[in-house]
Design a binder for these strands. Structure first.
Ligand SMILES: [Mn+2]
Ligand SMILES: [Mn+2]
Ligand SMILES: [Zn+2]
Ligand SMILES: [Zn+2]
Lengths: 145, 145
DNA sequence: TCTTACATTGTAATTCTTATAAATTATTTT
DNA sequence: AAAATAATTTATAAGAATTACAATGTAAGA
């Protein structure tokens, strides 16, 4: 159930000086219930029924607050807008080059890469980023006319 | 010597209907001689002495032309501007979170990740992207006051 | 209640990149 | 070589995503 994790996120916020507001609750709720990787604008559009006066700046502001607290991760892609992920445990993404669909997957061992990079470059390595690109099943099927 | 690879790039262009112009030559020359990962604007600034009338659009246009021909790769980062790499053979990057320095490194085996992603998600996987983030030696030293 | 701190809103500004149209330059055709 | 065609550059406007800012609103603490 996504509600447990939503509650955990709310509790995490309470332990800071960040106040819970209706807008914040709605943004978090949307993130946890959709379980997708929405853009700021998608969130904004999804909530404009409930909050006709909400500013898009509020969405951006709060996503940054959530990021700082650590309950949301930002996924940045070159051309288009950032996407936001409420699953903060380590996992990777497969992205469809056709339709943009993003799917989570897990892979155990990439720490080896970090260690090698440290040795080869002399950097003190903290973390890494990886995505896999391809064609999703839906798009593959459509191509086969 | 970078000049051999520059010549190869020029030859690759000649085999298409793409014309060689002074601006194009200068952009390529800069890419191959600097051997860094400059932004479009860095290239533009670096060449404004030689080409006081060159438009920044020309830099962007030509970088796209080079990308299409396959002699340049675009590295996209979320917040800031794209960087361009004239080394198109497969390699990875370590990026300093402090100063933004980008250093190449090689790692043999990440095809395994692609295979696993295919099996787990049903995607037809084409390629992947990976970067490692940390602190470069220079920045590490400065922190130790 | 009064004061202070935090949030939201609406809008302007910023940044990076692309689109457009006119002017140049190069290539091909006559 | 001159004319026609195609590619390229330039200058500038437009676009999209995000942030900054100031005014207003709301909650918490004294
Ligand atoms: Mn995810
Ligand atoms: Mn590189
Ligand atoms: Zn797809
Ligand atoms: Zn550094």
């Amino acid at each position: 159930m996504a509600n447990e994790q939503l509650q955990e996120a709310i509790d995490a916020l309470k332990s800071t000086k960040v106040r819970m507001t209706p807008q914040r609750h709605a943004i978090l709720e949307y993130l946890y219930n959709s379980m997708s990787h929405p853009t700021a604008d998608e969130i904004y559009k999804a909530l404009e029924g409930k909050f006709p006066n909400m500013s898009v700046a509020t969405v951006y502001n709060n996503l940054r607050v959530f990021k700082d607290v650590g309950i949301v991760k930002e996924l940045t892609y070159g051309d288009s807008s950032s996407r936001f992920d409420c699953v903060t445990t380590e996992h990777y993404h497969v992205i469809c080059s056709d339709c943009g669909k993003i799917v989570d997957f897990h892979y155990p061992g990439l720490n080896e890469v970090e260690t090698l990079a440290e040795h080869v470059t002399g950097f003190k390595v903290d973390n890494h980023r990886m995505e896999v690109y391809g064609t999703c099943p839906d798009c593959s099927q459509q191509t086969q006319h």
